[in-house]
Design a protein around this nucleic acid. Structure first.
Length: 344
DNA sequence: GCTTATGATTAGCG
DNA sequence: CGCTAATCATAAGC
């Protein structure tokens, strides 16, 4: 293990100490006699360097905003040049000096091993508390819907299945005015789709940028304090979770937009279109030739629907309407209200 | 513009 | 779930 090798390195740096002694930070100090002061120094430097890492990260993101302070230091060589000279990678010189000084400090391996030891204890207690989150059912639902509506699926092709079905339901003859609504719907859907994808891409880019940034930061810090790859992984997972929750909001609002579009489209469909002449003929023919039992079976309905280029439920509607209206007419026929002169 | 025809929707029933 | 009956909303005819 990596931590283990670092600990060994730390041991080597301490010379005469036995492994048992290393375990307890206090024993390290006792054994070394004077280094209380040193440890304190290093701790302070580490604290400072952590802050500086953050500042430096900020400086990279917003270069015009130079860090306001570089931590309290009593080294006269670095005094009062905040935001001053920089070198390689945009790092301030004083920062590089201090980093180097810290890394070369004779007590650093010892401190590192102490930190490893402490970590070993605390990590054990943390481990296993969380881990492994199940796939969010909410996000899966949204994904499914976006896929079904052709927003997140493959471009065009099968993606417009919903639109095609809706167009069929609109009932117009192919190329007739139903087609206008159809293309309108498709255009709007494409617009939503485009916005969704560009936003998604932005989120993904931001996520990977941020992830890289944090990983670099952690790797950098792992030189001064023990950070296992597992922890970096976990941190990445946390970041991804956060970003995916943002993504969920995007998905949710996209779904809402599609729902609104859809409901508008359905409202438009509600505008009644008469079936074409030929379709009405076919339906009437069936109706009058089955007058004794004008109830087409499911198969017959499908057949009629195919012949008339309408949906099965439209066939059902038609027969429902026809039966009731025919009955009304017939029922009223024997005793209609004729005027005395024979007119209706 | 009014009336009629007609497709869709809804409540209620078995 | 399929049907009836009532009703809505719009197209079409005059």
């Amino acid at each position: 293990m990596d931590d283990q090798t670092r600990m060994l390195a730390g041991l080597a740096g301490l010379g005469g100490l036995s492994q048992g002694d290393i375990g307890d930070p206090d024993s390290v100090r006792k054994q070394l006699g004077q280094p209380q002061q040193d440890i304190g120094d290093i701790l302070q430097q580490i604290m400072a360097i952590t802050d500086e890492s953050l500042d430096e990260a900020q400086a990279r993101c917003w270069p015009e905003e130079s860090p306001a302070h570089w931590g309290g230091s009593d080294d006269p060589t670095e005094g009062g040049e905040a935001g001053g000279g920089t070198a390689g990678g945009g790092l301030p010189l004083n920062f590089q000096h201090r980093k180097h000084a810290l890394n070369c400090h004779r007590m650093k391996p010892a401190l590192f091993s102490v930190l490893c030891e402490i970590k070993e204890k605390t990590v054990l207690s943390i481990r296993g508390i969380q881990d492994e989150d199940p796939p969010d059912p909410q996000i899966m639902r949204l994904d499914n819907m976006l896929l079904a509506e052709g927003v997140s699926g493959p471009e065009k092709g099968g993606g417009s299945a919903a639109a095609a079905a809706a167009a069929a339901a609109a009932g117009g003859s192919p190329g007739a005015d139903g087609g206008i609504e159809h293309s309108d719907y498709r255009a709007k859907l494409a617009q939503i789709r485009q916005i969704y994808h560009s936003e998604l891409e932005k989120y993904e880019q931001a996520c990977s940028e941020f992830t890289n940034h944090v990983m670099n930061l952690l790797r950098e810090q792992s030189r001064t304090r023990p950070i296992s790859p597992k922890e970096i992984e976990r941190m990445v997972a946390i970041i991804h979770r956060k970003f995916s929750s943002i993504q969920m909001q995007l998905k949710q609002s996209t779904c809402e937009a599609v729902m609104i579009l859809r409901s508008r489209f359905l409202d438009a469909r509600r505008k009644r279109r008469n079936f074409n002449k030929q379709a009405t003929e076919v339906l009437n023919e069936y109706f009058y030739s089955h007058l004794s039992n004008p109830y087409p079976s499911e198969e017959a309905k499908e057949e009629l629907a195919k012949k008339c280029a309408i949906t099965v439920s439209q066939v059902s509607n038609w027969f429902g309407n026809k039966r009731i209206r025919y009955k009304k007419n017939i029922g009223g026929y024997p005793a209609p209200c004729y005027t005395p002169d024979g007119r209706l």
